[in-house]
Nucleic acid binder design. Structure first.
Length: 404
RNA sequence: GCGCAGGUGGCAGAGUGGUCAAUUGCAACUGGCUGUAAACCAGUCGCCCUAUGGGCUACGGGGGUUCAAAUCCCUCCCUGCGCACCA
């Protein structure tokens, strides 16, 4: 494999979406310029099928490394997933079956395909499962690993300090997590790990272990987390409902990006699109101008991102659909169709189809004037049941075609 | 093992016998406005019913006291803190 050492490309990788590089940016640059092939890995916990734009950032960078000719490894944390990373605040220990993990992995790789050429002919991505080695370790091995760290080092972590202050439990097995993730580095013999800022501690544990067991300097490449520059809130939060997930349809993804806060736009351009630094600079200037319309810039952002995952055509039709539905208050082209049985009341059919959660909710929606027909006339009778085919608008976002 | 403090709706967190389907904040949903599903303002936010009313289910699990319990008692499970133990 021929290793590309073009300085401009390397500089771009080392600056864009980078939070921190350990031990230093300079030492990594030196390695990258040396022409030696590096083995770079990223860990992915198979806890759920959902991958969002924040994850994508990492894989975008990983792909850039791969194109330079470096060996890229995606580690599926099927073993670690069972323990539950304590970094994730309450991390209920969900026990996943091997089968579920395999399923998740399949959907993941599918979602990653638009970003990273996993099956590239010359330099394919290697996919490994840490259950293959972690599940075979003995108690003795684990104790040996554990002896590399002190309790104080573990307790130093912010989240533990916080939990102690708040009298929240800290489980013993949580200390094992950095050990496991760290051992992955040893087993794989990697030169670098890529991770988000939340994984810094774990990655550093791996650095320590790699030094001791492999006599190797492992680099840690930490990418920025997607967070609101003003409120510091996570952009891709499932609980906040702001996440943009890679398995979303083009329309859904487009809408979710449009729902991002204005102040998030620039970072999303940097971390989640392939626009060049020059183009992004131009956008930044436009954003600063008083006469510019943030809506249009956000639409550009949405288009660029959706394009990556669904192609330009789908992105364009998502944009058109969005304008038609929300800017002009129309009805999108493809609406859910519900066939109403003979004598079946409309509310029952809607609940059954999962359009609304309950009939009580339906009543409230009617009362608040949220339900309209295609000609914008309001439905005021909660028992309204059409006897011809109609299109119902429920709020701005829900549309159902009721057919008989 | 002992003592003390806790376990409440998607989350955080009030309530300590009836006025509690449960204050408030976040999230969600709807309306208004707009530059969009941004922001802001307002409303809604357990379920079911032929409904300015009625019924059912819910405050860790189970049992009890009472006309009446999220609230009192018993018991079990879980968590934190302190003490004790520490080969």
């Amino acid at each position: 494999m021929n290793i590309i050492t073009e300085e401009k490309a390397i500089d771009e990788i080392l600056t864009r979406s980078v939070q921190e590089i350990l031990p230093s940016k300079e030492s990594l640059k030196k390695e990258l310029m040396s022409g030696r092939q590096l083995k770079i890995y990223i860990g992915a916990d198979a806890t759920g099928p959902a991958l969002h734009l924040g994850h994508a950032t990492n894989y975008i960078i990983l792909e850039k490394f791969r194109r330079l000719g470096h060996k890229v490894v995606i580690l599926i944390g099927d073993f670690t997933a069972r323990i539950g990373d304590p970094t994730d605040k309450t991390a209920a220990r969900v026990q996943l079956t091997r089968k579920q993990v395999v399923e998740h992995t399949k959907t993941w790789l599918k979602q990653l395909l638009p970003i990273i050429s996993i099956n590239d002919e010359d330099n394919p991505v290697e996919i490994v499962y840490n259950d293959d080695w972690l599940s075979k370790m003995t108690f003795e091995n684990v104790i040996n690993l554990a002896s590399n760290f002190t309790v104080q080092q573990m307790l130093e972590r912010d989240m533990y300090q916080k939990r102690m202050k708040e009298n929240k439990p800290i489980y013993l097995h949580e200390f094992m997590y950095p050990l496991m993730q760290g051992y992955d580095s040893v087993h794989l013999g990697v030169d670098m790990e890529m991770c988000g800022n939340d994984q810094k501690f774990n990655a550093l544990a791996g650095r320590t272990l790699a030094q001791r067991y492999n006599k190797k300097e492992k680099f840690v490449f930490i990418t920025t987390l997607l967070e609101n520059p003003v409120t510091k809130e996570k952009m891709m939060s499932k609980s906040l409902g702001t996440g943009v997930f890679l398995d979303m349809s083009a329309d859904e993804m487009y809408g979710k990006i449009m729902a991002q806060h204005d102040e998030n736009m620039l970072q999303l351009f940097i971390d989640c699109t392939y626009l060049t630094a020059e183009e992004i600079l131009k956008i930044k200037e436009t954003l600063g101008r008083k006469d510019s319309n943030p809506r249009d810039i956000k639409a550009r952002l949405a288009f660029e991102i959706v394009k990556i995952y669904h192609g330009a055509d789908a992105a364009q039709s998502a944009a058109d659909g969005f304008d038609k539905t929300f800017a002009k208050g129309g009805v999108p082209d493809d609406v859910l169709e519900i066939k109403l049985g003979d004598g079946e009341p409309l509310p029952d059919a809607l609940v059954k189809a999962g359009v609304i959660p309950s009939k009580a909710e339906w009543r409230r929606l009617i009362e608040s004037g949220a339900v309209r027909l295609e000609d914008d006339s309001k439905v005021v009778d909660p028992h309204f049941t059409p006897n011809v085919t109609v299109i119902l608008k429920i709020g701005k976002r829900r549309f159902v075609k009721i057919s008989r």
